[in-house]
Design a protein around this nucleic acid. Structure first.
Lengths: 221, 221
DNA sequence: TAGATTGTTAATCGATTAACAATC
DNA sequence: TAGATTGTTAATCGATTAACAATC
């Protein structure tokens, strides 16, 4: 259970949400069929995933939700305390500073950094903003493991490098840029453009499929 | 070239950014090796992807950037005009309304909707905010194809259903909830929590790998 | 017991990588 | 021509699905 395939991990993250919801509703078990239908995957695959993380099911009942949640939190390292710093207090940065849900996963934004002197030494969502000049020192002081990048693309690589030099282990990148990081560093790209392009592509694919159906139908008459 | 495998699509989106950057630098060709190293994939795979989208390369030169960009924009449906509406003018919603880059992809946010009457009939980033009560009618009037959800999880499913009834074809969901949508509707989840959990998981994996190395090293002495 | 559900092996499918010929 | 790079087939690898036995 040390690691699971990336695709399984993605499914299991969504499984975690399902399990939390079901637990909140007072349910005790989830069947593979139920999970599969909500996730839009094959039910055999759900059973395989359960086997991978050593969650045993009960025939006729399903998989025990408490155990499932426990295993998933352990697998993903949820609740392990991690300190993050945020760079770039623009619109997106502000939104992230105000997002209360990260705390649920054990992640706390210790402080933020910004070039604009007007914003420095104010605070948003309980997070104080400092000038980027002191970033490197502060990261070491607060022992940040995660750097959140919400800055314009131009500066992103430079800031990322600084963060890594200061000891950050993972970068959560919201800038629309392909960062280069050394091996061993964790990089998660959250580029909005990528999401949008994927959506546009899927929309276009649907249209093509529809057109084909229409053509197929009209050629019948 | 009508459709490419999802994994190829993800690589090609990142390729698109590279190509744009290279084009801006006045470069004319990109080699598969160069693309592969920046994307962190095998160079054979890049050549396969190029073949899939019918971009022919020149031995000793590489792949022509202009053609590559043209093909990718056509493949993804970039620049095709699409109208979007946004629901939920919280911190994240405001950030999205102020994000000027969507326009590059042909996407325009026509208007936004919000429950809070205080916010209604004001405007942010040039986008006017209306009460949710008029959402269904407005969506039809502006001919929106894309619905952007930036609302608390509780309402998300209800609002999504309303949007779809009003004729929206794709949903860009920023709420931390698993939406159920009928077949033929495009759903792109941009849930921040999922990104965070993936990051946490990768961090933890790195730690395990490190510990193993340390153990391996100490057992040698 | 019958029926529903889990668990697991084997078969299929698709994606990645290796090898090498073709081309400029 | 020599060398670098593309293009493509075959081999490998991993992920998904099918089939069915095991279990409550």
């Amino acid at each position: 259970m040390r690691t699971v395939p990336p695709k399984s991990a993605q499914r299991l993250i969504r499984c975690y949400y399902l399990a939390q919801e079901a637990q909140a509703n007072g349910e005790l078990y989830l069947t593979s069929r139920h999970i599969a239908s909500l996730l839009g995957v094959d039910e055999t695959q759900v059973r395989k995933d359960m086997a991978t993380i050593h969650v045993e099911g009960v025939p006729k009942r399903g998989y025990p939700i408490d155990l499932l949640i426990e295993r998933l939190e352990h697998l993903f390292g949820i609740h392990k305390e991690r300190i993050a710093v945020l760079v770039g207090v623009g619109n997106l940065g502000k939104a992230l500073m105000n997002y209360p849900r990260f705390f649920r996963y054990g992640v706390r934004i210790a402080c933020a950094f910004e070039r604009d002197p007007q914003k420095c030494f104010t605070s948003i969502g309980g997070v104080t903003i400092y000038p980027v000049e002191v970033m490197k020192e502060m990261v070491a002081v607060v022992k940040a493991e995660i750097g959140i990048l919400a800055i314009p693309p131009h500066d992103a690589q430079e800031i990322a490098t600084l963060l890594l030099e200061a000891g950050v282990k993972g970068i959560w990148n919201f800038s629309p840029v392909l960062l280069r990081v050394p091996a061993g560093v964790v990089l998660r790209n959250e580029c909005l453009e990528t999401g949008l392009v994927t959506l546009l592509y899927d929309l276009q694919k649907e249209e093509v499929t529809c057109n084909f159906s229409v053509e197929a139908m009209s050629s019948l008459s």
